[in-house]
Design a protein around this nucleic acid. Structure first.
Ligand SMILES: NC(=O)c1ccc[n+]([C@@H]2O[C@H](COP(=O)([O-])OP(=O)(O)OC[C@H]3O[C@@H](n4cnc5c(N)ncnc54)[C@H](O)[C@@H]3O)[C@@H](O)[C@H]2O)c1
Ligand SMILES: NC(=O)c1ccc[n+]([C@@H]2O[C@H](COP(=O)([O-])OP(=O)(O)OC[C@H]3O[C@@H](n4cnc5c(N)ncnc54)[C@H](O)[C@@H]3O)[C@@H](O)[C@H]2O)c1
Lengths: 224, 224
DNA sequence: CTCGTTTTGTTCTCCCGTTCACAAACTCCT
DNA sequence: AGGAGTTTGTGAACGGGAGAACAAAACGAG
């Protein structure tokens, strides 16, 4: 029993936070295969990272391993899930039910990882009352009441880029404090509101850059 | 005329490469608004980054600005596009035409940024001959011939996680050297093959982590 | 032509993240 | 019980990126 705070560890580095979900996924896979214990080496290989990095990452959460033995899969799985916050259920709203919005609404990976889609919203009246994945598409005007009713703090934006900022503003006004943005635009939000973006075109352009490099300078390395 | 190589700059940092597409998008927006010149301050604000960082990033490409004036929007746009490699057309294949694959196939942002979807492939015979976004869904067995015919080097994986590794192996075997993976799995590929992943669940879990933090420790900062 | 203003390109410093390397801690075997 | 073998947790070195600050360069006014 050291001076470490026993319950919740302080200030986990951002890079580590981004990898914890990967470890969690790896642990779930191992548990499904009936494996009850694993070493940092094995888990690291499964997660595609260096074992030293894995151990350092896990050390920010506490000392959950046993020297000479390794980690208990189920125990570590729970500890990471608790640290990330996915032991509870997070209600989520999706705004913009077009091509991408439909795919997101139908994505089962949401639910299995602690996120529950409580509403699908779209500005286009023609889309209203359409039922997608068991949920009726509702008017964007209903945002306030839905957020209040389900205590939603996470919103997903899948509208065209031109609408994204105004949707974000409206989300923030209703009390949403975390936004996942699929529209190719930089969102500006007040301090305290978290934004993450997913931009498919940027990913492809990064691949294209390295691809172009390969053809002129053979032997150039891979992409992280 | 310094000792700098005039044509293609060497070893651009990875962090810079990831931001160049953002600058490119900002420049395109500015050009569409009829703006012909902009300062690093303006462009940085548009791209959501620090102006010093922007200037440093651009300096890796060369000296394309004019001191006391700023950057010529059209000229800089072309230089970045050339550096990334999106002045040419990149043929792309998408494998796994389910919920997500449909959305990707219908996404117009591909084409407008220099990527051309040349084929949609799926292992399920029931999906074959369905026409999505003007392209017929074809058998996964056709991968070799399609890659050879169109000289494809970039592949997108939108299959379930269990199939992703085998699809990746097959892609690599046919000569594809860049993969964009949407399946929640770590892919292992040979050196020289670039892989980037997009994992929606991870993004949500990162948001959830910070969200949980906010509720216990108010005043905690935003997410990058 | 000269001076003041503007803005880039670059240098310098600091911080975060990665990786190595090893002592501490635990198990198992004799 | 003790020693050999294994594996974690972490201190320390290292590398890369972020941001501040400034010198160099271009432009315009007078
Ligand atoms: N389709 C893809 O695969 C893909 C991939 C990457 C990024 N994106 C981005 O995701 C976004 C959505 O893409 P999409 O293909 O689904 O477009 P889409 O046009 O099919 O769908 C957009 C939907 O948003 C709705 N909408 C428009 N303005 C709105 C507003 N102010 N409030 C609420 N809803 C509004 C529209 O009615 C429409 O249903 C775009 O920004 C696109 O660039 C799409
Ligand atoms: N739907 C989403 O919004 C979403 C979001 C994030 C991640 N993902 C991930 O993207 C992937 C696809 O999701 P989805 O919702 O489109 O699933 P889906 O089940 O709707 O589609 C998967 C498609 O892949 C095809 N397929 C299966 N095995 C194949 C193989 N070996 N070769 C070629 N094709 C094969 C199937 O026939 C099916 O058409 C999954 O890994 C999912 O976890 C989806």
């Amino acid at each position: 029993m050291t001076a470490r705070t026993p319950d919740s560890a302080r200030d986990i580095p951002e890079a580590t936070v981004a990898r914890l979900p990967v470890y969690l996924r790896a642990l779930i896979s191992l548990a499904e295969e009936g494996i009850t214990t694993c070493s940092s080496e094995e888990l690291a290989a499964f997660a595609g990272v260096n074992s030293a990095k894995l151990r350092k990452d896990l050390s920010y959460l506490g000392s959950y391993g046993t020297r000479g033995v390794g980690y208990d899969v189920e125990y570590l799985r729970y500890q990471i899930a608790r640290e990330i916050g996915v032991t509870q259920d997070w209600p989520v709203v999706i705004v913009g039910i077009g091509n991408l919005g439909h795919a997101l609404a139908n994505y089962s990976g949401f639910r299995s990882r602690g996120f529950r889609v409580v509403a699908l919203l779209d500005a286009d009246p023609d889309r209203h009352e359409e039922v997608v994945a068991g949920l009726e598409v509702r008017s964007f005007e209903d945002l306030e009441s839905i957020v209040a009713e389900h205590d939603v703090s996470i919103g997903v934006i899948a509208t065209p880029a031109v609408a994204a900022q105004s949707v974000a503003d409206r989300m923030v006004a209703t009390g949403i404090t975390s936004i996942l943005n699929f529209a190719p635009t930089v969102l500006s939000v007040p301090d305290g509101v978290g934004v993450r973006k997913v931009d498919l075109s940027i990913e492809l352009q990064i691949l294209a850059y390295h691809e172009q490099r390969k053809s002129v300078a053979p032997g150039a390395g891979a992409v992280s």
